[in-house]
């Protein structure tokens, strides 16, 4: 009796161990598939031409180590400028999305007025319909406003693109805030504006961070609008800059690999810092949806 029990228990434990090994095997295999291409590009960007071609899978050794690619990129490409363009566009768009989005979400969640439901639905349309479909008219509009080849054109488009989802997430969250605090503030004689800036905004800070990380990726990585609205040398973003740089230097592999790495590395560093925030943001949004 007891031997049967122990055999069964052992078999159960073996089964669990086997299952756990299977789970790890699949996850590990896919993790390698996910990061291998990134690693191989970054690794080879630190090699000379011979190293890149004769031993693409090896780590850079003393004979093959070289930063000639980076030297070419830094002297030939204007990557510092592209970086600052991307940074300006992303940061300003994010700031506007968060500020305006929070204001609108506050109005929709806090006050009763006639058009409330209608406005909510109107704004949600933007989540379903990609803004790119209006590109033809957006370009004409930017020509009319003399905003072509300015960073402002990109900022306006990205703000319009990011607002619907920001308003949606923030409204959902603001509805859960306690009314007592705001009513107390009203009794104390604070204006509605001060209630928003001094009471509501501090309370939604964590959600603002989530929306920020969430909205940032498509702005930083976009190719379509920089290509169409701001492709001049002075207004190129990193994504467009890398795309065109590679177009010109197709035969210079070290330079191509270095420019790719230059575009990848900051994203990876930021991700390493903010990954917890980002992932909890995505999963929190999903639970609500």
């Amino acid at each position: 009796m007891s031997t049967v029990d122990t055999t069964r228990a052992r078999r159960g434990r073996m089964g669990r161990l086997g299952a756990a090994a299977g789970v790890h095997a699949v996850l590990l295999a896919y993790t390698i598939i996910a990061i291998f291409p990134v690693l191989i590009v970054v690794l080879n960007s630190f090699k000379n031409r011979r190293g890149i071609f004769t031993e693409p899978l090896a780590l850079p050794r003393t004979e093959t180590f070289s930063v000639e690619g980076y030297a070419t990129v830094l002297t030939e490409g204007n990557f510092l400028l592209y970086y600052s363009n991307s940074l300006i566009v992303t940061v300003v768009s994010l700031f506007l999305i968060l500020l305006f989005g929070a204001m609108a979400a506050h109005a929709l969640s806090e006050y009763r007025f006639k058009l409330n439901a209608l406005l909510g639905v109107y704004l949600i349309l933007g989540i379903m319909v990609p803004i790119r479909l209006g590109t033809v008219a957006i370009l004409q509009l930017m020509v009319d406003l003399s905003l072509v080849n300015t960073l402002i054109s990109l900022i306006l488009v990205y703000t319009a693109q990011g607002l619907p989802i920001a308003v949606f997430i923030l409204t959902e969250f603001m509805r859960t805030l306690s009314r007592d605090i705001k009513d107390c503030a009203r009794v104390d004689g604070l204006s509605e504006y001060r209630i928003f800036f001094e009471v509501v905004l501090p309370l939604v800070r964590p959600v603002l961070a989530t929306v920020a990380v969430f909205s940032m990726i498509p702005i930083w990585n976009d190719l379509w609008f920089p290509l169409i609205l701001a492709s001049s040398d002075a207004t190129k973003t990193v994504t467009l800059g890398v795309q065109q740089f590679i177009g010109q230097y197709t035969v210079n592999w070290s330079a191509v690999l270095a420019s790719l790495s230059i575009a990848i590395l900051p994203v990876l560093v930021l991700y390493a810092i903010f990954s917890r925030q980002l992932i909890s943001g995505i999963t929190a949004g999903a639970v609500k949806g």
Binding site: L96, L99, F100, G101, M103, A104, H106, A107, L108, Y111, F113, L119, Y122, L123, L125, G126, V129, I131, L133, G134, T135, V136, A137, I138, Q140, L141, L156, V157, T159, A160, Q161, L163, P164, V167, S191, E192, Y193, F196
Partner: peptide
């Protein structure tokens, strides 16, 4: 309702001009 309009205006304006209008214009 002034403050409601002020809170909503930036979002509604930017969204309408650069997202909804271009779509209809297209």
């Amino acid at each position: 309702i002034t403050h409601i309009a002020v809170f909503l205006a930036p979002t509604v304006l930017i969204y309408s001009i650069f997202s909804i209008y271009p779509l209809i214009e297209s």
